[in-house]
């Protein structure tokens, strides 16, 4: 064998490939991208903006955050939990006409992102008083001089967590860098790698597109009378 082939073979031996399929997951997570993390010898789920994932099978959850924020929530006793990835839409005019700006469309999106995550954990046996919360993201990546979108997202998620009576066990928020994030609900460990602010067109485009979709998307059309 050549040197490179031997090296590759040794790497493969040291980090064996996935032994079998990813652990079964709930129907509403069927479309979430899951992969075998060779380095950590375990399955992981990769989130895109707007997605969330909850696991009871010791999986890790990863994502890349620019101005978006992620709440990492787990039940300490059971080692189950998950993560979301969201941003508040800019257009606060939807809904503010009747309710006033207090419950803007922007806030309602954020509330849903948090509610889904927490409710799923509680339904899987989690208890509110055992929940541990870590917050990450909200970098000054998107937006111009006039508006700090990251800061807006951070303000929302901090307030939400405080209103719900949770304390923040760890955080890595703000600054001007995008972040690559790995979270393990089983151990509670949150690993953050700060990325180069300049050379990240994919992330910038993805978040900008997500914000556009949020602002365009008519909210509240799923009403069914039986």
């Amino acid at each position: 064998m050549t040197h490179t082939k031997r090296h590759a073979a040794a790497e493969k031996a040291r980090y064996p490939a996935a032994p079998d399929n990813p652990p079964p997951t709930q129907q509403h997570f069927a479309h979430i991208s899951r992969y075998w993390d060779r380095e950590n010898q375990g399955y992981a789920a990769k989130l895109l903006p707007g997605e969330y994932y909850v696991t009871t099978a010791g999986e890790r959850i990863s994502t890349v955050l620019g101005s978006c924020v992620s709440a990492c929530v787990r039940d300490r006793r059971l080692g189950i939990g998950g993560m979301n990835h969201f941003m508040l839409p800019l257009d606060a005019s939807k809904g503010s006409s009747i309710w006033g700006t207090a419950v803007s469309a922007a806030t309602r999106y954020g509330n849903v992102a948090m509610e889904r995550l927490i409710n799923d954990i509680l339904k899987l046996g989690g208890r509110r008083d055992s929940l541990e919360v870590k917050l990450v993201g909200g970098g000054r990546v998107l937006g111009g001089i006039a508006i700090d979108i990251g800061a807006r997202n951070i303000e929302f998620v901090r307030k939400y967590v405080a209103d719900e009576g949770f304390s923040v066990a760890g955080e890595d928020l703000g600054d001007i860098f995008p972040r690559k994030v790995h979270y393990s609900p089983e151990t509670g460990k949150l690993r953050v790698k700060k990325l180069n602010a300049v050379r990240n067109d994919t992330l910038y485009e993805r978040e900008r597109h997500y914000l556009e979709v949020l602002d365009r998307d008519p909210v509240g059309n799923d009403i069914e009378l039986f």
Binding site: G95, N111, V219, G220, D222, I223, E224, F226
Partner: peptide, 17 residues
């Protein structure tokens, strides 16, 4: 139940319902 409304809801739609 009479109906099912998914969050986030649109206030005008809720009132209409």
């Amino acid at each position: 139940a009479t109906g099912w409304i998914v969050k986030p809801f649109n206030p005008e739609q809720l009132l209409a319902t």
